[in-house]
Amino acid sequence: MEDYKNQFACKSAELKNALKLYYTGPLEEFSSPTKYYRMRAEFRIYHEKDTAYYAMTEQKTGHLYKVDEFLIGSKKINQLMPELLHCINENQILRQKLFCVEFLTSTNGEAVITLIYHKRLDHIWSAEASSIQTPLRACIIGRSRGQKLVLTRDYVSESFFVNDRVLRYRQTESSFTQPNAEINQKLLRWVNKTCVNTSSDLVELYCGNCNFTVVLAPKFRNVLATEISKIAVKSGQHNLMANDIRNVTIVRMSSEEISQAFYGGRRFKRLSGVDLKTFMFNTILVDPPRAGLDKHTLGLVSQFDRIIYISCNPATLVKNIGVLDETHEVECAAVFDQFPWTKHLEVGVILRKRQSN
C-alpha cells in the first residue's frame, strides 16, 4: 500500500511541476483502490495442445505471458476467468480458433463476455455458447471478421451516485467507457461540484455515452453534445432517457466539424433542425483522446467564458493550456488515479476567461 501511495504522490508531483507556469494553486487528489478496480479487460488466448490459456503480451519485448489471475480487474472478472476457461477447454467448438476474450463488467454484478475467433461462427457455435451463459451468469457475444453474434444483449447496466441522484448508464460492448468505476464516480462528483446552476447553455465535445452530460445537464438551460461514434451516440441517447434528461441535443459530429459549424459558417445535414443561434453558450466541456485538442478545436474552445477540460494525457493537457493561457487562466485542478500502477493520470481542469483591461 505504501508503494501505491508513493507512486501516486510522484505522479501528482510531476503534474504540479508541469503546471507551475499556469497554475500554482491546490491540486485535489483522488486515489484509486489498489485491487479490483478495472471493469473491463482483454486477454489473448494461447493454445498449447488441446488446452487454452489466458495470455498478455509484454509491450517492450513482445514476450507472451500466461495469466492465471488479474487482480486489477473487477471481482466479477476474477470470478469469471477460471469459470469461462473451464467451459472453453471442455468444448472444442468454443475453443477452436479462439484468439481473444474481452470482459465488460459493472458494479451491479453484470457481465458481457466477447469471444473473438479466426473462424466463421454458425448456429452450432451459437447453441454451444448459449449453453454456458446461465452457469456463468454472463451474456456472451461472438465475433469474427465481419460478424457479431449477440446471444442476449451487448451491454451492462451501471449506476453512479452523485449527491442525492442515482445515475443510470448503459455501458455497451466495443464502445469506450471509463475503466475505473470508483474513480469515475469521484470524477463525476468533482465535475458536478465545480458547476453551479445557470440559465446559460453548455456545449460538450467528445460526449461518449453521455457520462458527464447526465451529471451536468440539470445545471444548464440547454446542452449541445457532440460525438463521432454511432454506438456511443446510441448509448448516450438511452442514458439521457434513463435519467429523464430532456434538455440535451446530441449530434454525431467531430470536434473539427462542430468548429466549422460554429465559426466557419459551414452547414451540415446532421445539424438540420438545430439552430446554433438560439443557444446561449458560456461553458464548454472537452474530454479529448490522448492526442489532446487540435488547433481548430482550441480556437473554438478559446471563445467560451468557462472551460471544463478532462484529460487522460497530462502532457497534451499542459500543451493545450499553454495555448489557452493567452485567453484563459486555470481556476482549479484535480488528479484522478484512473490507472493505478502505471505512469498515466486522469486530470480535470477548470479554466475561466481572463478579464480584459
Results as ranks from 00 to 15, higher is better:
M1A: 08
N6W: 13
F8S: 06
A9M: 09
C10T: 15
A18N: 12
K20H: 14
T24V: 15
P26W: 02
F30N: 15
F43H: 00
I45T: 08
Y46A: 09
Y54V: 01
A55C: 12
L64A: 05
D68G: 15
I72R: 00
G73N: 04
G73W: 02
K75D: 03
I77D: 00
I77P: 02
N78D: 12
M81A: 02
M81L: 14
T105L: 07
G109K: 00
G109T: 01
R120K: 15
R120V: 14
A127F: 12
E128C: 15
T134F: 07
T134N: 10
L136K: 02
I140L: 09
I140A: 03
I141N: 08
V156G: 06
S157A: 15
E158W: 00
R165E: 13
L167K: 02
L167S: 04
R168W: 08
Y169E: 00
P179C: 13
N180Q: 05
A181Q: 03
N184V: 09
N184P: 09
Q185G: 10
V191D: 13
V196W: 08
V196I: 11
S199T: 10
S199F: 05
S200W: 04
F212C: 02
T213N: 04
V214D: 00
L216T: 13
P218A: 08
K219Y: 08
K219Q: 10
V223E: 01
A225Q: 04
G236C: 04
G236L: 07
G236T: 06
H238C: 14
A242M: 14
A242E: 10
N247R: 05
I250V: 07
M253G: 02
S255G: 10
E256N: 13
I258F: 00
Q260S: 10
F262C: 02
G264D: 01
R267Q: 11
S272H: 09
D275V: 14
P289H: 07
A291I: 11
G299P: 12
I310G: 11
L317T: 12
L317V: 03
E326C: 07
T327A: 09
E331R: 07
C332M: 15
K343H: 05
K343F: 02
H344Q: 05
L345S: 00
L345H: 05
E346P: 07
E346S: 04
V347D: 03
R354F: 05
